[in-house]
Design a protein around this nucleic acid. Structure first.
Lengths: 191, 191
DNA sequence: CGGGTAATGGCACTCGGTGCCAACGCTAAC
DNA sequence: GTTAGCGTTGGCACCGAGTGCCATTACCCG
């Protein structure tokens, strides 16, 4: 029950809309936090109560999605080979409802093509890697920060990002590209 | 021949020394550019003529080292399997003269454990990935920005970073860890 | 001794981000 | 209906990174 206290004047979703609009018209770097706050009719100080940084705007509810991936992995049948389970989880994690695709595309264009956001993404990806490393660790009976799980997590991330970049450039099928990248790597290893 | 004009008052190497000393005592984040400039006896404005950003200080001559790796890859015998060639190149790229190990360790501790530098590293790693992707592209007859080469580059980077993190924590043999991580991945793919 | 040249460093400015705090808007209890 | 308590707001002042501008400085050569 949100009983006492002044009501919140806006929401993350609303600020995201306003900000995306500005990003689309002026670009991310050329849009200042003041611009966003002004366009949303709030104070600059208030913006930072909704988002810890300007860099967080494009990320939506990433943590929430991570929880979803964690659960899916937990439900993965034990006889599925490790890398297959991870491949399926990644493809699944990135399954986007058709009507959400344009928005998702804009998110990822920002994140993957804006230098400041490319840099920042590393910090966000750390949580993603932890999920994978945790799973790989459990499956192989090692701590998540052992070399094996850690490597697998970094590799899985690399594959995913490569597939995403390809997706942005070619406008293909994201799930297919993720799958293809993941399987293609196995092939590369075989020679 | 640097004939005419005022002589440079310091050098990247000197600034690096001064800065590393401060980083070691106060940490990276708590050391301001003013601190470094003052300790080096130069103006703050001048600092930014030696380094484009504070984040660049720990990177030494990374671009130069990349050139080395490019050359080594070019010299790699054509019959060596692709992933083996890359593995060897990475191990080689990271072979450090014994007396340089402590410095290298401090560099990597900064880069891999300071959030701001973790983030920034992504931008620096892009050039590293390009070298690998270029090689993989030539070997497989694809453009470097095709899905295959791009994935291989991201994966190789992931493996290398994972091994580095392990190295920092366990103080083992870096070359061995890199090799192990790279081979271990192949094993993971086999199940 | 000049004249050309390149490095220096001060100044002012932008922008992201933070601590502090008074004012505000709301609910519930009296 | 007034008021106490509560959470939100947003202004202000501040910090630190990074940049454009420009006068000054130190150097080399003729």
């Amino acid at each position: 029950m949100p009983a006492a206290g002044r009501r919140r004047v806006t929401s993350r979703a609303e600020l995201e809309r306003v900000a995306f609009d500005l990003f689309g018209r002026q670009g991310f770097e050329r849009t200042t936090v003041d611009d966003i706050a002004a366009a949303a009719g709030i104070g600059r100080r208030t913006f930072f109560r909704y988002f810890p940084s300007k860099n967080d705007v494009p990320w939506g509810d990433f943590e929430g999605e991570l929880d979803r991936m964690r659960l899916r992995l937990k439900d993965s049948p034990a006889q599925t080979p490790l890398m297959d389970a991870i491949r399926v989880a990644i493809v699944d994690f990135n399954r986007i409802a058709p009507e959400q695709v344009p928005l998702h595309r804009r998110r990822m264009e920002l994140i993957l093509r804006t230098p400041a956001l490319q840099a920042y993404s590393t910090l966000r990806y750390a949580a993603w890697r932890e999920v994978i490393a945790g799973f790989a660790g459990e499956r192989t009976g090692q701590p998540p920060d052992a070399l094996g799980p850690r490597t697998i997590a970094y590799v899985a991330l690399g594959v995913a990002v490569a597939a995403y970049e390809q997706w942005l450039e070619t406008d293909g099928d994201l799930a297919g590209l993720l799958d293809q990248a993941m399987r293609g790597l196995a092939a590369a290893y075989r020679g």
